[in-house]
Design a protein around this nucleic acid. Sequence first.
DNA 1: ACCTGAACACCGTTCAAGT
DNA 2: ACCTGAACACCGTTCAAGT
Lengths: 241, 241
Amino acid sequence: MCEWFYPGKMTGKQFPSVWLREPRKTTSPGRSREEIVRAAMELLDAEGLHGLSMRKLGAKLVTGATSLYWYVANKDELLELVYDEVWGEVRLPESETAHWREFASVMAHSMRQVILRHPWSADLIGRLPALGPSALSLTDRMRRILKTAGFRGADVDYATATLTSFVYGFTIPEVAWKSSMGEGYDIPAMHDIAARAARDFPDLAADFAVEQSEDPQVMREVAFDFGLVSILDGLEARLVT
Amino acid sequence: MCEWFYPGKMTGKQFPSVWLREPRKTTSPGRSREEIVRAAMELLDAEGLHGLSMRKLGAKLVTGATSLYWYVANKDELLELVYDEVWGEVRLPESETAHWREFASVMAHSMRQVILRHPWSADLIGRLPALGPSALSLTDRMRRILKTAGFRGADVDYATATLTSFVYGFTIPEVAWKSSMGEGYDIPAMHDIAARAARDFPDLAADFAVEQSEDPQVMREVAFDFGLVSILDGLEARLVT
DNA sequence: ACCTGAACACCGTTCAAGT
DNA sequence: ACCTGAACACCGTTCAAGT
């Protein structure tokens, strides 16, 4: 997904993007970009962002690490390519006439699922330009739906930013947590630790204790829906004015 | 800020936190934790998360890198300590009787400013447990205000998560962008690049062109306020039900 | 046109050894 | 109680050289 109004200065270097360089005209006797991207995706899904190194990727493709630099200027360019694949997995309502709330809701849920499926992508949001075809197409459809719904001018940007910010802010820390803690850790022990840390905050400690019985997985889903509905209500209020 | 309902499994290791280990009883002939944390903060602010290495920090304190391991179990523990300092900089309304919307608004703006001031902290959100005194105190006050306003049970968690998710999701990509692009880059060149990348999406390209004249810095502030007000409206709707 | 290996300048952490 | 330096197993990228 693409948010274009990022801050900058009038001076300085321009930013590079794979999508603006012609790929090497490949007679493809050897590797190909697609092959490299696919292998990188597998490595990323299996071992995370830190698990992808040029050396490992080279090994997986039975080449020297440095051979990859023939196809790709550097690691960031490679990541840009894989990053766009991720946005390509977002599923939207087929219909062009979907109601904007329905559309936004489906998109938000799908974006979250896609990030959860590729946790490493969370670390790339904002770090890499999202100028690939999939990211742009997503942005384009969302904006068209919002315009049809009645949003005008910069409000289209603002509404999009509000929605995507919520999805990102809900999901990025979640996957960061998961990958830093490893997949499995001890829930009761975690509650015990939280309770001990909160010993100087009795209300907090009490709430921790009460909600210990809830399933955190379920709570996260409910929390996401709660936030999403709140935001859609809030955006709708902007619309009627 | 602390969100406790992160997912986990019933098995596996428990997570570690500095806040649950007694610090070494220091007779302080040599370094101290405070000194180390202060130096780390300076290094982080000056050079970012990648700029902080145990070797550089050691050099700054005129010690061997490995000496630091006497005061801190590992780099993550050190980061946990500096991380809490960041939350300590969030400014809230003094009054205990502030209206919840006012409170939430001030908190959201302050959190954003603090993250912008310490961009490296964005990468730690979710990755490290936020169990330090400053983080807990922030969580505690927010929750008390929401309860006073009428939020009940898990809605207190959900409302907090909605608000903080928006702040995180708005700010994390923003600072990621800034630090990956460097401080200054060429705005017109950026627009040119975006336009060229969007050549297959005429509506998108047209909007890029129109909004080229806006100041991105200003737009970001307006966008943040737009999103924040929308969310507060949406949360208020949950309240009256 | 494509691939290679050596080299550079880094990492976090462990550990035996020193004072 | 505190500090040290060597060592281990890594990084991304450059570059001259090969085929």
